[in-house]
Computed example of a mutant assay.
Amino acid sequence: MARGSKSFAMASKLFDRTTRERAWLLYAWCRKCDDVADGQDHGGTMSGVIDGQARLSTLRLLTGLALRGETTGDPAFDGFGLVMRECAIPHRFAHDLIDGFALDAQEWRPRSEDDMLRYCYHVAGAVGCMMAVLMGVDPDDHATLDRACDLGLAFQLANIARDISEDEAAGRCYLPQDWLAEMDIPPGEHMKPWARARLAVLGKRLATMAGTYENSARHGTGALPPRAAWAVLAAAGIYGDIARQVARRGEQAWDRRIVTHGREKLGWVLRAAGQVPGRGGRWPAAAPRRALWTRP
Rank of each mutant, 00 (worst) to 15 (best):
M84Q: 05
V83Q: 09
C87D: 03
M84Y: 04
F101A: 05
R118Y: 06
S112F: 03
R118V: 06
T71P: 03
M84I: 01
F77G: 08
D114I: 09
D115A: 12
T71L: 06
E107H: 15
C120Y: 07
R118L: 12
Y119S: 03
G100R: 10
D115H: 12
C87E: 10
W108S: 06
H91W: 05
F93N: 13
Q106H: 10
A76W: 00
A88E: 10
D78H: 02
I98T: 01
D96K: 08
D74Y: 04
F77Y: 15
L117Q: 05
E86P: 04
H95K: 09
G69I: 03
A94C: 11
Y121P: 01
G79L: 13
E113F: 06
G81I: 09
P75D: 04
S112I: 14
R85M: 04
G73K: 09
T72R: 07
T72V: 10
F80D: 02
A105F: 01
H91L: 02
E113K: 13
E107P: 03
L117K: 00
I98G: 08
D74I: 07
E70K: 12
L97Q: 13
Y119G: 09
A102W: 08
R92F: 02
R109W: 07
T72N: 09
V83D: 07
L117I: 09
R85W: 10
L82R: 13
M116P: 04
H95W: 12
R111G: 15
D115Y: 05
A105H: 07
D115T: 07
P90T: 03
T71A: 11
R109T: 14
E86R: 15
V83G: 03
G73V: 01
D74K: 06
L117R: 01
E70M: 14
R92S: 05
L82D: 14
S112K: 11
I89A: 14
L117A: 07
E86D: 13
E86A: 15
L103K: 08
F80A: 02
T71W: 01
